[in-house]
Design a protein around this nucleic acid. Structure first.
Lengths: 211, 211
DNA sequence: ACTATTTACTAGACACTGCCTAGTCTGGCG
DNA sequence: CGCCAGACTAGGCAGTGTCTAGTAAATAGT
């Protein structure tokens, strides 16, 4: 639906693409619907056909961001290597994304998501599911495929490890973005986190099993 | 300077106070200089005498935020207890602050700080110095009082530990604020981080010393 | 095939914002 | 007392997001 061009072409896609660039250049505050319309050569009211709100545009951008981050992490996960190596690769992918697209990352994790659209929520959930897949299934729970989400084992080592990982990477990206630390220090944090988390009881609990 | 009342009273302080409340209620986007002036009963141009910019107001708020966060951490640090207990207390203080004043936290760690005022920069630095004090001095370095900042040992276990800690807490606060996880899960992350970091080589390196 | 409806888009308006500028009042100082 | 720097007022400007009524075009209905 709303897929093929007719009047202008596919305005929605063009707007999103331009918006992402504008976001990178000028930040969230500098992102103006009217300026976007001007660049696309349409009237200032045109974007309203595709995004009811400015916030709707931002939500769509955030959704795209989650999709791209998930892809990045998935490809960081693809290669071979020990769990620790993959830990570091995924961590770097996460932090890299957050640093290179700082404004987008801010959008994705903004407090605005009081009632996010289902699409956005799904995109975010998919990111966290992907992180789950990166972590060995919890040997403590009888069921190894604990990704089905029907019965979320909140206290499982797997979930706890994932959350700790996500928090650390998220925070690292924030510290770099806010110029509190340099990118190289961020890498050091990732390395330290890898050895600390994998060496912890939580980490060993996950590693100590056959497959 | 600009301390005592004359015309209106101390507008600057009133504006800051109201702004902090407005920040809590409506977020950064909802913070309007004109509305602030209205509430204070002054003309819409009045704030300009105290804040050249909207950004200047935001910077001042961020500065205040750093001061308050530092105080909170300091008092969390004050009580007795093992290093691990204090780790958890400080972590909770950090995360609590970031969750309760999410918009302010966002301001403090926004990417906007391209050329922050000296006052803001100092306030931020003081926070990180306070975190330093919470961590035992690095036994590896000959000088135990490594807080002077003149020769920042970038690779010291102390600094690395601090950064890893800060990143984790910062990220935890973000995940909670963005409704990705619940507050209780945040506490679990803090606990897991405490045991993981203190049990790591980095942590044991810091703990293995007399005093 | 002709109409009807939905949709994309235009154009104008409104309220609001931050910022600038010129003027006014006031408290403190030489 | 006269003067002056600083706090404050009032008006205006450009820009914004959102709403509305109207237009044109693509799709759907019969």
């Amino acid at each position: 639906m709303t897929s093929r061009p007719f009047h202008h072409g596919n305005l929605r896609a063009v707007l999103l693409e331009q918006a992402e660039e504008m976001l990178r250049n000028t930040g969230v505050d500098g992102l103006s619907l009217r300026e976007l319309a001007r660049q696309a050569g349409v009237s200032h009211g045109a974007p309203r056909s595709h995004f009811i709100d400015r916030q709707a545009l931002l939500d769509a951008l955030a959704e795209q961001g989650f999709v791209r981050l998930t892809e990045n992490i998935r490809s960081a996960l693809a290669g071979r290597g020990s769990f620790e190596e993959r830990f570091r690769r995924v961590g770097r992918a996460y932090v890299d994304f957050g640093v290179e697209d700082a404004a987008l990352m801010e959008l994705m994790f903004a407090a605005k998501l009081n009632d996010p659209s289902k699409a956005l929520q799904d995109a975010a959930s998919r990111l966290f599911e992907t992180l789950d897949e990166a972590i060995p299934a919890d040997p403590g729970s009888g069921d190894p495929s604990a990704t089905d989400g029907s019965h979320i084992d909140r206290g499982s080592a797997r979930v706890r490890f994932k959350l700790l990982f996500a928090a650390t990477m998220q925070g690292t990206a924030t510290l770099i973005t806010s110029r509190r630390i340099a990118r190289s220090e961020g890498d050091a944090i990732i390395d330290d986190a890898a050895s600390a988390l994998l060496g912890s009881e939580l980490g060993r609990q996950l590693m100590s099993r056959p497959r």
